[in-house]
Structure formats: C-alpha cells, structure tokens
C-alpha cells in the first residue's frame, strides 16, 4: 500500500514537472507592428537636390572681372549668402566684379579683399548668392586623396573634373608664402578660384594655377581657414581705372 502511495506521488510529481514541457497556447498577435523602412529616398547617391544640381554646383559661381580695358573670368564658391572665395589674380585690376550663379542669376559684387599670403580673395555681395554654401574641411587632403574640382573652365559651362592629390609642392607662381598642393585634376584658365572637394563634398582647397604637365595647384584649406580667421591679413582691393 505504501509503495502504491509512493508511486502515485512520484507519478504526480513527474506529471507536474512534465507540465513545463507542455505546449503553451499562442499569445495574441501584435496589432501595432510598424516596419521601419530600410531605405530612404533622401539617402544614398541617388538622392536628388531640390533642382537636380549638386550642392557643389549650386555653391559655385562664375566670376567676371570687368577691368581696365579687359574682361576676364574665373570661378568662386559661396561661403555664405553674401561671401564668396576666389583667387586674387581673378579680380586684379578690376573696375567691376560680377558673379553669375549656376542657374544664370547675375549678381554684382560690393567689396573685394585680397591678401599677399596666398592667391586668395574674398568677395562680398549685397544680393544673396543662394542657399547652398561650402562645407569647409578641417584638414588638408593628403597624397592619393581623390578630389573633385567644380568650375567654369575657359569661362564656359559649369563642369566637374576629378583627380588625385600628388602632395605638397612649392608654389609655381611664387605668389604664396606657404606650401601648396599639386593634383592631377585637369583645369583650364577660368577654373581659377574653383573649389576642390573631397569625397564627402567638403572644400579642401582652392584651384589657382596649372603647369604644362596639366597638373593643377591648389591653395590648401588650412591656409584658407587661416585667412578667414585672421581678417587682418585681408586688404580691401581698390577699384582701378
């Protein structure tokens, strides 16, 4: 009899412990599950700008120097709505400076400042240049970095070329105090003042010269930042003629 009781208790215990292995009833199905999108149209290389132009194209302007008996053209890029950067030699001997945006708007410059430290000039305008401005990089590009140059070669259409940074080089024109950088990006007269962009679209330099080997030379962004931080290095350019 006692063995039967023990067996019964053992069987009950075994059965109870086996309850944990019994299948459970299904839980309620979720009703508020919202899948998160894996791709956003605003991301990736296919993302469109408001008008189909890239940010680099929209911030790049064509500079027209109406000088004393001559007219020359160059390139510049907007730092903000009323300030742009170009080369000093683009606005030399100027009587009037006009800039034209990527979409054909013509804007008159009000003031221009140059420096002897580098072939850089800062131009201001009364009318707004637009809504896209340069994102200035913190560091200079290094050798083998891929760069892109956006500008108006020969005063023609807005165009983009790419190249690779070759490294530091002495200034071929002797107009800069610091070192400059040589790249393989092909530029032409009229490209002077073009922004040089890294792969993230940040400005890493300003085109100012080329040589017979079709190498281009750029003022590194560190020099540009120094000039922007030390405004005392900039001297207003007086109208000639």
């Amino acid at each position: 009899m006692s063995r039967s009781v023990v067996a019964l208790v053992a069987a009950c215990t075994l059965a109870l412990s086996g309850c944990n292995m019994l299948p459970q009833a299904p839980g309620p199905l979720p009703t508020d599950f919202v899948p998160s999108p894996s791709v956003s149209p605003g991301e990736g290389p296919g993302a469109l700008s408001p008008d189909g132009f890239t940010a680099a194209q929209r911030m790049t302007v064509r500079v027209r120097n109406v000088g004393c008996g001559f007219i020359s053209t160059g390139t510049g890029f907007a730092l903000d709505a009323h300030t742009l950067v170009t080369n000093r030699h683009v606005i030399e001997d100027t009587k009037k400076i006009q800039v034209q945006t990527y979409d054909g708007r013509s804007i008159n410059a009000t003031t221009a400042s140059t420096t002897t430290v580098a072939d850089i000039a800062i131009i201001t305008t009364e009318e707004s240049l637009g809504g896209t401005f340069a994102n200035v990089a913190r560091q200079d590009p290094v050798e083998t970095d891929v760069v892109t140059v956006v500008g108006y070669p020969k005063g023609g259409r807005l165009s983009t070329v790419s190249g690779v940074v070759l490294g530091e080089s002495p200034d071929p024109l002797g107009s800069a105090i610091g070192t400059v950088l040589a790249t393989t990006a092909t530029v032409e007269p009229g490209s002077s003042g073009s922004p040089v962009l890294d792969e993230d679209g940040r400005v890493v330099g300003v085109v100012y010269a080329k040589n017979k080997s079709n190498q281009s030379f750029i003022v590194p962004v560190s020099t540009l930042k120094t000039l922007l931080d030390e405004t005392s290095l900039l001297v207003p350019e007086a109208a000639q003629c």
């Binding site: 008008d51 189909g52 007219i71 034209q100 990527y102 054909g104 013509s106 023609g156 259409r157 807005l158």
Partner: peptide
C-alpha cells in the same frame, strides 16, 4: 533640364561678357 539650364546660364554668361 539641368543641362539646358547650364547651357542657358553659359549663354547668358557669355552674352553678359559680350555686353560688358
């Protein structure tokens, strides 16, 4: 369209160059 805008901007710039 962007190509046309660029072409027109180029034509406008050249015309402005000539006008200047």
């Amino acid at each position: 369209a962007t190509g046309k805008v660029t072409d027109l901007a180029d034509s406008s710039a050249n015309a402005n160059d000539q006008a200047a």
